[in-house]
Amino acid sequence: MNDPLTVAALLAAIQSDDENVRTQAWLRAGELGPAPLKQLAQVMAGGKLEVSRAAQRAMWRIVHVVGAPGATGRDETCAALRELLHDDQPVAVRREVAWMISELSQGEQDVEPIAALLKQENLREDARMVLERLPSENAVAALKTAFESAPDDFKHALAQSLRRRGVQVAGYPSQKLKPTKATRVKPVVG
């Protein structure tokens, strides 16, 4: 793959049976910016195990290249990633994409779709952590709103995120030092 890279060439190489071809492909994915993200997510969701991994690594490569100082395409990449947060995507893709956004997002547009994930039990903890990381003040506001209506078993986690962001929260102290998991093992003689 020494020729100028195209989306089609990248996708073909990512799905190659040759591990070295796949690797060289994902290493170059950043050259294309956000253009192949949607197709890569499809490959990630549906490909063979190692092909899926290569597609996921290509997506991360794009995130790391467009996130470099002076690089272009950051906002466009976030926009493309937001499209992959919808319910039509598998949970594994949405979870990974949320974390990609956590490394890139600077704007306000990403907060609402991430905050929407707080209502989904299998994604809410990832969404909470991503909002905790996003620099936007809207992310803090979203955590506050979620805290007001969250089920009790999730309020502690949201309170922790709010405290991390400098917000005072009444009640719901951290349970970090409270043991919860007992063992079935008994001391034994060797």
Binding site: E125, R128, M129, V130, S161, K176
Partner: peptide
């Protein structure tokens, strides 16, 4: 930094 899963923070 890396956000941590509750309550392991």
């Amino acid at each position: 930094s890396r956000p941590q899963r509750y309550p392991y923070h």
